[in-house]
């Protein structure tokens, strides 16, 4: 599986090299140029781009892994994957690993942007931004880590749920052209229903974590079942 991971990563970075270059340039310009010299439309453009990147990277740190996992079943390389008789369990686990990796990567991009802000401005600006984004003041670092971990676990649950939804729909309706957006909407809808059902016990932090893990595992085994027995290479 090492070579599979290597090529998936290499392919992903090749496809995203222009986007990563733009992010790099914007971060560099924002980091290098002193605030006092911020004048003119040109630099304002960089700041607008910077804010957009911050929001996109935060959004992607929740959703990118799931989107990527779904796309992996539509890419032409899935045909190559399908030729391998080795267990789909192993391949799906690798896909999850890659999904987590990319979620973290986008989160790190977001975090480095926030640190850049911290470097340029003061701590209060960062706090204001965090309150705007998360709706909570994380002056307590322990609380921040706890919440980040819960969000991180939730993104894994969302990845496994949306992959399960996509694969099961394609297994039963192979001619139905479902994209990632519709998959996300259905997954979000299912997730909300389950959340409502589990709400009375979800208030406890560790119960939430355990329920998320159990739910991810159920979706994982469901996906593996469909890939083994029903899913067709349709592209």
């Amino acid at each position: 599986m090492i070579k599979y991971i290597k090529w998936e990563l290499f392919n992903e970075f090749q496809n995203k090299k222009i986007l990563l270059l733009i992010i790099g340039i914007v971060y560099m310009v924002i980091g290098i140029i002193p605030i006092t010299s911020i004048k003119g439309a040109f630099l304002e453009l960089f700041y607008i781009a910077f804010i957009i990147i911050l929001f996109i990277s935060l959004f992607f740190s929740f959703i990118y892994g799931a989107k990527r996992t779904i796309s992996s079943y539509k890419n032409k390389t899935f045909l190559l994957e399908s030729m391998i008789s080795s267990s789909p369990n192993k391949i799906l686990l690798t896909k999850y690993f890659l999904a987590i990796f990319f979620n973290i990567l986008w989160f790190l991009l977001f975090l480095s942007g926030v640190l850049l802000l911290l470097f340029k401005f003061d701590i209060n600006a960062i706090k204001t931004l965090i309150v705007i984004v998360f709706g909570e003041d994380f002056s307590d670092i322990y609380e921040f880590i706890r919440t980040t971990f819960l969000i991180f676990i939730s993104t894994i649950t969302f990845t496994s749920l949306s992959t399960f939804v996509f694969v099961s729909i394609k297994s039963y309706f192979p001619n139905f052209n479902i994209g990632s957006t519709l998959t996300f909407i259905i997954s979000y809808f299912i997730g909300s229903i389950i959340l409502q059902i589990c709400m009375p016990i979800m208030n406890d932090y560790w119960v939430s974590i355990i329920l998320n893990i159990i739910f991810s595992m159920l979706c994982y085994f469901g996906t593996v079942y469909f890939v083994k027995n029903k899913f067709e290479v349709y592209n």
């Binding site: 290499f10 032409k76 390389t77 045909l79 008789s85």
Partner: peptide
């Protein structure tokens, strides 16, 4: 089943390898 794929080597009629 997916397990019997080990007996078969398949050359599809279209591209399926990584671009680079």
């Amino acid at each position: 089943s997916y397990l019997t794929r080990k007996y078969i080597s398949f050359m599809p009629d279209r591209e399926f390898l990584y671009k680079n």
